[in-house]
Design a protein around this nucleic acid. Structure first.
Lengths: 334, 334
DNA sequence: TTGTACGCGTTATCAA
DNA sequence: TTGATAACGCGTACAA
């Protein structure tokens, strides 16, 4: 099937293709009756502008790349929804890239982003190096990094929408210090090293500020099954801390189940907090306390920010938007 | 920054752009020393072909659209991973579209798919009408529908990778009939109407075949909280069936928690099966029995199928690939 | 207000 | 084996 082009419309409406182009792009220098004639021709033929040709002519694709690591898709579904919904209100197309170890590395993705000439990029901060990101900056592609705080803050064309996990951790630990509790454990998460490291920083800083050192890490492989098996043995040997903090749902539940099995009760013997909230935390008994993060909003804000950056082309100034968090006490904390 | 084009490379290597193009596309009619000269120029300048221009010249974008409904992203993460991994081995770019009620309807997405001139489309069967799908077929765009079985089987350029939920349900019910159990309930799922309907068909057929009628539906709004509140009241009034079947994790857990609270024990008083398996089913106590579906594989198969369809252009013949399922007995079934 | 002609960066067809 | 040139479909100065 031959696709209808702007030429076909021009012929049908008996005008030049320039006029058709003007009608499509709402140029106000078209006389009303010819505009109508052209519109009718467009309707009649079912003409749809070819975005590829437009992209070539304008050096602008109205397309945004989103890069996410494979194993975090289900965790980032809400942020993704926020991103996609705003993208669609701006009529951006979305190129979706997943980083997946051994199959699709960040360097491949950078390559395809450059070839595709997308207008901007959303990165979830994980799995990419400073160099890989800067490869994009060479091509002046605006980037918004979403998730946690980035280190380098002086990069032009880079913005950051984040929750300050370091502060969250710091405040959390201090609030327990205030209650006189210093025996706290942190369960390590290998799935999300970047955010995990911020948490660690916060923990260590809080202890350091009190003249102590934090070393109470619990770590193991990242599947639920493995962590459960590990923890079951662990808590049969070791008395649990007064507070145990984990990052994701699976770990929190693994801690809970293995504590119970070892004869400890929550929150009496040991309190439990999971950083990332989700519905599964309320499905287990007792319900697990957590932090509420504005995930959907982070998506919408990130996409709006990118849109702004695309409008005021190369204003270059970096932007940082911190999002707040709030504690949701449930049944695993006193 | 001006992007390097094929002209720049041609000038640098002192050849015509036609020759550069030949080198890029591995044409074998290039003399070895000029090929090397061109390669060096490409390296030196850091030239990357412009995919947009290629798309225009070839009428082929090497891009696939994936369409999914907003609320199913986290449930379909594994299928998505399968799709993305195979896509990246074929070097396809992925345009990602989400249907989200009131924000981005299927008709908008069809529009943008057509404008973008993607080579093929992967649809998750939900949320779109026959008409919307056929709008794509008018443009000869090959489609693979993944998830459950489609009704119309005579459409050219349409393939289907699916699990037969009707058969699954039918077999499930019959296996309980064989044990002499006919008191079975099915929890309705509003999130995934299409698959849910297939399940219903299977239930009703199984009962009909035994000269009975199946009417034992339990239905309510779709959040965990709502279902838990509803079910808690429900099981305080009504004695639960001998077997309760639900589609998703949240409902299964809601049933479990409310049964316990009403003083029933699982599986002694009431057995429980959740159709879609995931890790959360093994985190609660007792572990919930479920069906294992080859989700990741469905993704890889769907993308490979689409690739084949793109190669043998408009062979037109429809293809149907059924995937098997298997029951995973855990602690909620006897 | 409208039309002509060129450019966007490639690929492909012909000649040379 | 190479090079010139016409597509691909659109936007846009510039001219009319």
């Amino acid at each position: 099937m031959k696709r209808i082009t702007i030429y076909d419309v021009a012929k049908e409406a008996d005008v030049s293709l320039a006029t058709v182009s003007r009608v499509i792009n709402d140029s106000n220098v078209v006389r009303e009756d010819t505009r109508i004639r052209v519109q009718q021709a467009i309707e009649k033929l079912g003409y749809k502008p070819n975005a590829i040709a437009q992209g070539l002519a304008l050096s602008k694709t109205t397309t945004i790349s989103i890069v996410m690591s494979e194993r975090l898709i289900s965790y980032n579904a809400k942020i993704l929804n926020g991103l996609m919904n705003i993208a669609s209100t701006y009529h951006y197309n979305i190129m979706f890239h997943v980083i997946s170890k051994g199959i699709n590395e960040m360097s491949d993705i950078v390559e395809s982003i450059i070839k595709s000439h997308v207008d901007g990029v959303i990165l979830f901060n994980d799995d990419f190096t400073q160099d890989e990101m800067e490869a994009l900056l060479v091509y002046q592609i605006p980037i918004v990094i979403v998730g946690s705080k980035i280190h380098k803050t002086d990069l032009p064309n880079v913005a950051n929408v984040y929750v300050d996990f370091e502060k969250l951790a710091y405040d959390l630990v201090n609030s327990y210090f205030d209650k006189g509790i210093t025996d706290i454990s942190l369960v390590e998460d290998k799935l999300n090293m970047y955010m995990m490291n911020r948490l660690k920083q916060g923990f260590e800083k809080a202890y350091r500020d009190k003249g102590m050192e934090f070393t109470n890490y619990i770590s193991f492989d990242d599947s639920y099954k493995n962590s459960y098996i590990y923890l079951s043995k662990f808590f049969k040997k070791n008395k649990p801390s007064q507070l145990i903090v984990s990052f994701r749902d699976s770990q929190a539940v693994a801690v809970m189940n293995s504590l119970k099995e070892a004869g400890y009760s929550i929150p009496e013997d040991s309190e439990l907090i999971c950083i990332l909230n989700n519905k599964y935390l309320t499905m287990v008994r007792p319900n697990i306390s957590a932090y509420s993060l504005p995930e959907y909003d982070m998506g919408t804000i990130a996409m709006r920010l990118l849109q702004k950056m695309l409008m005021e082309q190369n204003s270059g100034k970096p932007r940082f938007i911190e999002q707040s968090f709030s504690f949701i006490p449930r049944q695993t904390t006193k």
